[in-house]
Design a protein around this nucleic acid. Structure first.
Lengths: 223, 223
DNA sequence: CCCCATTTTAAGCAAATCTTAAGAAAGCAC
DNA sequence: GTGCTTTCTTAAGATTTGCTTAAAATGGGG
């Protein structure tokens, strides 16, 4: 699941964007103010930043600059009413990846977001775990070359586990990352999905690729 | 286990926070008054301070300032009804890491606490003790490169010992830090776990990495 | 509006872990 | 060596956590 942070002080715009992007199954957080926005951005939770040029508190440009120092690869897109060449250059120098001028069509923004989030050549789009192959672009999972039909959530869970192959994934983290649920870990939903994955992947005894780590969570692991 | 000290004179607020944070599995202590709060803060037991701006006795700002002299890295968050710029700057100059205005949503506070407690890049995630490796991120323990399956408590105990490698760890301290039990040291539970650790790590005679310090406690030690 | 696939909740059962307790062994002072 | 204290080891009961299944909610498409 891709996570987007919007820093935008006009609730009209931010709500519109949040709803639209959530319908496209992104996880969206909104900060209405610069200090809060910067802090959230630096938390490292996000895969893309949508910054308003001018927000109360720390400005979008400043957020972008400070963010760039920490996260060199995460894309930043500016939303701006300004379109003079000077300011644009200034913004790009601050490390932004793209600009979009208000007012804009939602489709155009979405397209640009997709461009930024498209895995760059050289980046992994295909992950493997033993004889299992997971392709994040075609959204296909194969085991021994045979297609396994997974639902959205099942795919997201498997993707999260495989991306973190070799590390124990804590339940709280899984719930946050795959379900976008925060502050409520007493649900048994992870277990049900792990169960479904193991069943659909038809893991035999000697194919213990999805291991449970009692008291902590689960781990995808090569054998 | 992360330990939080709340200094807040309104029992309504402090109880609400204590309960909520404990449900998130933080260890929480409350001081209702400044002098007591300062004393507890300076004890060095805590990983984060939640200070009310105004409390009877020593003020929150004063606690923060005095605390900063001793503990440069431990985060401090203020709870405050005040939000004028002057006071905010004053608070930040006193060394606070963040502010949150009353009234606030518990989720927001929790989010900010998590941001502050997130291990900063560059901090140690991997600790070693002889041929033993403990990774706090992947939650794995290796001996001679081979994975050792530890339970939660076993892992926590080993982590505590290794983090304090070379220092004797008193039983009372271990019970407080690993089990969060205070004022009750007559339990034999540490011995049982030390035993389990030595067994699982399969420590031979010349690998006495976890030493008994008779009458005091235990010590992890390079040989 | 209904149907169907997906997601979530709930509950009983199984298994691993945690804690307690008690006897054995080891360390220490005399 | 004797007697006392501390630590080690084991095992059993209590508790927690995970597995599995079925049923209930949810949500999108016809």
């Amino acid at each position: 699941m891709m996570r987007i942070l919007i820093v935008e002080d006009e609730p009209g715009i931010s709500n519109f964007l949040k709803q639209g992007l959530e319908e496209e199954s992104y996880a969206v957080d909104v900060a209405e103010e610069g200090n809060n926005g910067l802090q959230l951005a630096l938390s490292g939770e996000y895969d893309l930043l949508l910054l308003d040029w001018m927000v109360p508190g720390v400005s979008g440009i400043e957020i972008c600059r400070r963010f760039r120092k920490e996260f060199k690869e995460t894309p930043v897109i500016f939303l701006t009413a300004k379109d003079t060449v000077d300011e644009t250059i200034f913004g790009l120098q601050s490390g932004a990846n793209d600009f979009i001028k208000k007012p804009f069509h939602f489709e155009e923004l979405l397209e640009r977001i997709k461009v930024q989030l498209r895995p760059k050549s050289g980046e992994h789009a295909v992950f493997t775990l033993g004889n299992i192959t997971l392709n994040t672009v075609s959204h296909l999972v194969l085991k021994d070359g045979k297609e396994i039909g997974l639902t959205q959530k099942e795919f997201a869970l498997l993707e999260y586990l495989i991306r973190n192959k070799g590390s124990v994934c804590r339940r709280a983290r899984i719930i946050e990352r795959v379900w976008d649920i925060h502050f409520e870990y007493n649900t048994g939903v992870i277990d049900v999905y792990i169960n479904a994955l193991r069943k659909k992947l038809n893991l035999s005894e000697d194919e213990n690729y999805i291991q449970t780590v009692r008291g902590i969570g689960y781990m995808a692991k090569e054998l």
